[in-house]
Each structure stands twice: as C-alpha cells, then as structure tokens.
Nucleic acid binder design. Structure first.
Length: 544
RNA sequence: GCGCCCGUAGCUCAACUGGAUAGAGCAACGGCCUUCUAAGCCGUAGGUUACAGGUUCGACUCCUGUCGGGCGUACCA
C-alpha cells in the first residue's frame, strides 16, 4: 500500500513544475489518530518551502490531480496544516486478508533485499567460560536481526569469531592446571587474575577421569588449555542451541595469521604511510582518520594487538563475497570499531559495507536489586542458569524487548511471573486461544463455499485486518533499523486488536457465513502471530 | 579532562527516523465471567519529554550549553 500511495502521489507531482532534485522523498506514515485516516503523507508540507506557497493549497492541488483506484482507496482528505490522509477501501482490506492465508508461513516475506549476501557476526565470546547474560543479549539480537534480514529476502550467514590464543587463554590453562593439582590433593595456587568459576574445577575433574595422575608432572599448560577450550565450546554451543540459535561458521582468529593477511595489512598501511615504528612498536596513524591519538598495532613484544587481526578479519569477510557485514557488540567495544572501519578503508574497501549494532549493558534484577557481574570472578549468572529459571522463550523475548541502544533491565521476578505481568504470555495466549476456537469451528462446521469477507464490517474487525496487513512493512522497518523490539511492539498491538475483536464479536454461534468470515480473520491473526514469533525465535503454542 | 550512549507517567520502556492531541505494561483506583481459554476486556488517575537556549510551518527526535547516570579513554580482549 505504501508503494502504491507513493506511486500515485508521484504521478500527481509530475504535473508540477519541479526538477528531480527539488522533489523530496515521499513519506507515507500511519497517523497516530485514527481520525486521521489509515495512511498519511506530509508531502505538501515538505514542498511548501520549495514552492514558496502555503502547504494547504499545495495539498489541494495535489489531491485535485490525484488519480487513484477506488477499490483500494475510499477517501482522500486534507487535514491540519496540509497533511493528505488516505482511507482504505473495504475491498482492499478483504483482498489483503485473503493473501495472508494464501501465503501462510511465507506471509510477511518480501524481496526487498534479495540478491544481498550478508554476514552477521555475533556472540564471538572467547572460550574462557560459559556464556553469561551479557552474551545473551548479543546472541539473541544477532540471531533475530539475521532472521529479519532473511525475511526481507537477504541471504544471511551467521558467524562466530573467536581467539583461542593469547593471554586470557593462557591464564585459563593455568587455572585448570591448578584445579587439577588440587583435585589430586596437591598444593597449587590459582594464577594471578585466574578464573575462579566452579566450571574450572569441573574441567579439571574430567581431566582426572580421563588421564588420572598422568598429567601431574606436565608443566606445559597446553593440554589443560585444549581440554578447557573443547569443553567450554561444547557448552557454549549447547547453550546457543537451547536458545534456538545455530551458527553457520566459526572463525578462528588464528587463520588471519596463518594465511599471511596480517602482514599484508601492515604492508599496505606502510605503503600509504599509515603505519610507522616508534618505541619498538608498530603504530596505525589513526590521527589521519580524525582520532586524537595513534593506535598500536604491534606491541614492542612483537605481539599484535587485537585491532590488527580485527582489520584483517573484516577484509577477509568482505573478500568472501558478502556485500554487507554486520557486527554485534556491547558498548564496551565501541572504541575499536572506528579503527576497524579506517583500516578496511585504507585497504580499499568501502566502509559502508560494514555495519555495527551496538547494544548497551544488561542489568539483571533479582529480588528487586541489581546484580553486578564479572566473568573472571565467579560472580555471574550464566545464560543457562537464566534459562533454567525462566525458559528460552522468555529469555529471548526479554532481550529483544528494548531498543538495542538502551540499557536493559532484566527483572527475573517479572520474567518468571505467570500471566498478567508477563508480556510473552500475552502473545502466546492470544495465539493459543485462536487455535482453541479454530479446533471447535472445525468440529462444528464444514464450509463449502468461498468465504464472504465483506461480512466483516464491525469496527474491531476492520482494525484487526488493518493491523494484520501491516506485518510485511513492519518486518522491513525492523530489519532496516536492526531493531527487533519493533516487531515485539507490533505483535503486542496486533494481539491487543485481536482480544478487542474477541470481546466485541463472537465467532461460534453466529450465522454460518459470518462464522466462516470471522474464522478467516482469526486464522489470519494466528498466522501473523506465529510468523512474528518465529522471527523472534519464540514458540507459538496452539494450546496453553 | 576527552569520546560514545542514555535521561519521557511512581517503576520498566514505546513513539514508524522531523509530523497532527507523547503512548503501552506494571503499580493505584472503579467496573466486567450461567456464552468461543478472565493468562482476558473496558474505564479513571498519572507529563513543563532533566534544564536553558537555538534551527523551522512543526522538535521527545536535529544543533549549542548546563546538570545527572552508564561505558570507554592500555603496547588488555
């Protein structure tokens, strides 16, 4: 519908004396006030500065020249300072409603991004411990944005980037070794900054089981590190799977060392005088990109900082034929990404091909109090513990509920509450309730003729239809903005329109044609709820 | 100090990327169950959108400044 309105407005505007540049984008939006129609355009207001006339008379002129299909648009009005308001024709609503059932599981899919190959990188937690709630927001955001993009026609791959070398992993190996020795009754101290979590002891115990005392005199921590990595990764994957997330690939940072791309990056930078040596280290001239300090790429110890492989990794992603890469990371990493962008730009890539979703921190609220966490200290809530308490559906929902770029308060008590307080149930309940009715309809009726949708004339029925058919546009806007919470807000609104309809209009016990028409409406609602919940990765039960 | 993000009803948050009278959910108050799931519906109350300026037909949204909170500001990841 938006496209249709844009096209008829555009042809009306052709009759004005305007150049292409003077013509502003035609915006179509859904007015807040129902009295203002179903769609509205502010085009006349935007044109008033160009044409130097008052917007109302421009609107009048546009409307005069407007040609539209009465099967789609019932009325066009000018209101307020110069808005053009459109009211949809009933026929249009009924036609669209038919489509919903015809398309079924695919209703909502568009081809907006078809032909695009997108790589979305998320979670990317190093295997030093179980996933925590902080990773949870990352994981769910990344996966859901991926689903949204898939629904708009893009081909999306999910990738997990990790590093199993470096200091943290060394300390991990040392920590496991210390616990292993302790398990066997030997004296051993955790290294400084060692990992204190109980899972370290579990890894140590499984080493005791496998190798008995044979590792007692092994000073090298490699065996401990590798076992830890293996077990922790298994656990991470199990956790992700439990959250309904499947990665397409895992990328080890080591690869960009092994294939020589690290050196290539440095070389290319040097050629452009973007890299230089100072104090035994190699620096990236980030000042040239507007930063007030240059950045170390290779420490004087000879070890690269994480920025260097990060740049090489992004180049690698773009080289693999993705036209767009999306990274998901927490606010604490915000400083690194301008350097990565500068880096790939220096390598000759268009920086707009890398896009970033930054999310703010999660505060877990337990018993009314916020809970501060740190992975290294044993003081954290794992994602698994959270899912043990509230289940995967609610976990996903709560992480998606808020705009990414705002702090998220996850109130465990609220999440655990049955019904009333809990927004997830509201959606699932509406869905289950519809299916309960559909089961009864199936038992009692056998419709033979095509449904007469024009019998849906009640105000609540029409509002519900309008809400339903907005779904595809909703997906597009959530995908484009990378803000899954919009989908939640929409579904909530849809469910609320349904329950109003449910209270105003009965389905069973009415005249057969009306039963049939309302059944179609209910079915379409359930369809959209189910499709929407699928995008969110949340189940849509038919019974509760 | 500097950089990024945030500040909206008592609490947690929306507001379609600059649109018309700022909306939901909890919490409070008042109604609604011999009829399709009351895990629900309807209503009342609650606001100078932190504050002060500016930009324009129009600002919660953009710009400047102030105050308050979070994160970063490493040859850690």
């Amino acid at each position: 519908m938006k496209d249709y309105l844009r096209s008829i407005l555009r042809s009306a505007l052709k009759q004005f004396d305007l150049s292409e540049e003077e013509l502003p984008d035609i915006q179509i939006e859904k007015p807040n006030q129902p009295g203002h129609g179903d769609s509205a355009s502010n085009i006349a207001l935007n044109l008033s500065s160009v044409l130097k006339t008052n917007p109302r008379s421009i609107a009048e002129e546009i409307v005069q020249k407007l040609e539209y299909d009465p099967k789609k648009i019932k009325a066009v009005e000018i209101a307020g300072p110069g808005f053009i308001n459109f009211r949809y024709a009933e026929d249009y609503l009924y036609d669209e409603l038919q489509h919903v059932l015809k398309q079924g599981r695919d209703f909502g899919k568009t081809a907006t991004l078809s032909g695009n190959r997108i790589l979305i990188e998320f979670v990317s937690a190093n295997p030093t411990g179980p996933l925590t709630v902080g990773h949870g927001r990352n994981a769910v955001l990344g996966d859901t944005v991926a689903r949204l993009l898939e629904w708009t026609g893009a081909e999306v791959d999910r990738e997990y980037y990790f590093n199993n070398a470096g200091r943290q992993m060394r300390i991990l190996g040392q920590s496991v070794r210390a616990r292993y020795l302790q398990e066997l009754g030997r004296e051993a101290a955790l290294p400084e900054d060692g990992y204190e979590g109980e899972y370290i002891s579990e890894i140590a115990r499984s080493l005791v089981e496998e190798h008995g005392e044979s590792l007692l005199n092994v000073d090298d921590t490699t065996a401990f590190k590798e076992k830890a990595e293996q077990l922790i990764f298994e656990e991470i994957q199990a956790t992700l799977q439990r959250m309904n997330i499947r990665m397409d690939s895992f990328f080890n940072e080591q690869e960009v060392y092994d294939d020589g791309s690290i050196e290539k990056v440095i070389e290319t930078f040097r050629k452009q005088d973007l890299a230089y040596d100072k104090d035994g280290a190699t620096w990236f001239r980030t000042t040239r990109f507007g930063k007030d300090k240059d950045t170390v790429l290779i420490k004087s110890s000879g070890e690269p900082t994480y920025r260097l492989p990060d740049i090489a990794y992004h180049a690698n992603k773009l080289d693999r034929g993705y036209n767009q890469c999306i990274d998901v990371f927490g606010a604490d990493h915000i400083d690194t990404y301008p350097d990565v962008l500068s880096g790939i730009e220096a390598l000759g890539y268009d920086r707009s091909r890398v896009d970033v979703i930054v999310y703010q921190f999660v505060t877990i609220v337990k018993e009314g109090k916020p809970f501060k966490m740190s992975t290294r200290k044993a003081n954290f809530i794992t994602l698994d513990e959270l899912m043990d308490e509230v289940g995967p559906d609610i976990t996903r929902f709560f992480f998606l509920m808020r705009a990414p770029n705002t702090h998220l308060e996850f109130d465990v008590a609220e999440a655990k509450a049955e019904g009333e307080k809990n927004p997830v149930f509201y959606l699932q309940y509406a869905h289950a309730r519809i299916h309960s009715i559909l089961r009864k309809v199936e038992q009692e009726y056998a419709f033979e003729d095509a449904p007469e949708l024009e019998r849906l004339t009640h105000e609540s029925e029409k509002k519900l239809i309008k809400s339903i058919i907005r779904f595809p546009e909703m997906i597009q806007s959530a995908a484009e903005s990378r803000e899954p919470h919009r989908m939640i807000n929409y579904l909530d609104d849809l469910a609320s329109h349904f329950t109003s309809f449910y209270h105003d209009c009965r389905i069973l016990g009415e005249k057969e044609q009306l039963v049939q028409a309302r059944t179609v409406l209910a079915e379409a609602t359930a369809r959209v709820l189910a499709n929407g919940l699928t995008i969110l990765g949340i189940s849509a039960p038919e019974q509760m």
